[in-house]
Amino acid sequence: MSSLIKSSIARKVVMALSGLFLVLFLALHVTINLTSVISPDTFNQWSHFMGYNGLVQYIMQPVLIIGVIVHFVMGIVLEIKNTQARSIKYTKYKGAANAPWVSRNMIITGLVVLAFLGLHFYDFWVHEMTYKYIESNPEDPTRYYTETVEKFAPIWRTVLYIVSFGLLSLHLWHGFASSFQSMGLNNKYTPSIKSFTKIYAVVIPLVFVFIAIYHHLNPITH
């Protein structure tokens, strides 16, 4: 087992499993967010549940944060090791001739998504922690919709969200199906997994973008 932990294949599997976990989380996240467009009351109910349920707060949230950290740290470790594996670069290297841009630049799309996560955590998670644990405000199940919509009032934040989800789409485009290959699954189902990956990589970020634009264009009037 000790050799397994240090091996290149184990690193791939760690990237794949943490990535797949984050892919699943995206589906949950987008579903809850979409209710903010359909029904503000439902959005408030779900958000309040996610914010105060013990299982979500003390089990799922730490697991999610660990998942993000593991995926990010392992990605950086792999990038460093892979750069070291070719210490002298080619004078001419035609990477585009044999591999798509998205597959060769996961580190770029990944770092942009990570930077976005910093803004996203500041916007919502830090705000939530401050509200609940620093300011010790009472529970208010009706505040979430207003807080969310107000976040998208500035055009710069809406644009940043759109750009980030564009990059997330590219990251998913390669990463989702690739994780199955890393875990040793390449069989008759692979073409279907690749097709589903493309649909998922486009639809999920597109829904997030739609929600951001919708709230920007429909501000709350007091």
Binding site: K81, N98, R104, S178
Partner: peptide, 27 residues
Amino acid sequence: FGNCTNTGACEIECPKGISLENIARMN
């Protein structure tokens, strides 16, 4: 050697057409 990131460049450039399926099998 570096770590595979499933770009598929090796499969395209292999003069004998060795498939990525083999990497999945090895994993």
